[in-house]
Amino acid sequence: MLTRSRIRGKSFTRACSQGSHTPVDVAAIRWNIGLLLPHHQALPLTDDELAALTAFLRTHTQLLITHVEQAAAKRPPEDVPRYIALACTRQAHDRLSAPPAPDRHSLLVHARRLARALAALCDHHDALTDVAMSGVAGGAQAGVQGDPAGRPTAPTGPSGQPPTARCVLRPGCP
């Protein structure tokens, strides 16, 4: 069974006290997302573990929204990855502001929605900061690569799709 000590990463209080200059530990965030996603492989969680993990997801979503918005601000206004990343931050704000119903199933669904939104923010953070991306469960590395003619191609996420595709093109996106 999962214990509170297995949730990796800084507490939000420490992260907020350092402001937006706090470095983002994407590896720890993705590890914690892996506790909930994919849902058919997720570990069973007690009520306390679910509450602790949800608090982690909420606070790191708030932190990563700030980082993604700052990275997007450095891009030109007509930059498509910038535009899509900002759309993802708005969707993440919506996930944070949506209160879950008090029953356990609704709390779990809410935590999974936050996890998907946070995973998308991690992808956008990596894309905007030119970091090689990896899957939630530590999948294959992907990044900006060139074609045989030496022209750069778009970065890809864990699914082989551009990391921004899940935020705009799929209905029900986080």
Rank of each mutant, 00 (worst) to 15 (best):
P163C: 05
A27E: 09
A132D: 13
D130T: 03
R95Q: 13
A85Y: 11
I84S: 09
D126I: 03
T153N: 10
P155V: 01
H125S: 09
D79P: 03
L118D: 04
W31H: 09
Q161Y: 06
T59A: 15
C167D: 14
L2D: 00
A55P: 10
R8Y: 02
C16F: 09
G19S: 03
Q62F: 08
T59E: 15
Q18K: 09
D103Q: 14
C173G: 03
R14Y: 14
A72V: 00
G160R: 06
R90Q: 08
V80F: 15
I29Y: 14
K74H: 08
L2Y: 00
S159I: 00
L108C: 06
A55H: 12
D126W: 02
S20E: 14
A165L: 12
A92S: 11
P44I: 00
D79N: 05
Q70R: 11
R30D: 10
K74D: 12
T61N: 15
A87D: 13
T46W: 00
P23K: 01
L43E: 05
F56A: 06
L86Q: 10
V168S: 15
L114V: 02
I7D: 14
M133T: 06
A27D: 12
S97W: 10
Q41F: 02
A117Y: 03
T3M: 11
C88N: 10
R14D: 15
A142F: 04
D103L: 08
Q41P: 01
L64N: 10
L35Y: 01
L128D: 06
G34M: 05
A120P: 13
I7N: 11
L64M: 12
G150W: 00
N32L: 09
G160H: 06
P152A: 11
G19L: 05
Q62N: 13
V109E: 11
R104N: 02
I84N: 11
L96S: 01
K10S: 15
L63Y: 02
P163M: 06
L63G: 07
A132K: 09
G150Y: 02
P100Q: 04
E78Q: 11
L121I: 03
T66L: 15
G150N: 01
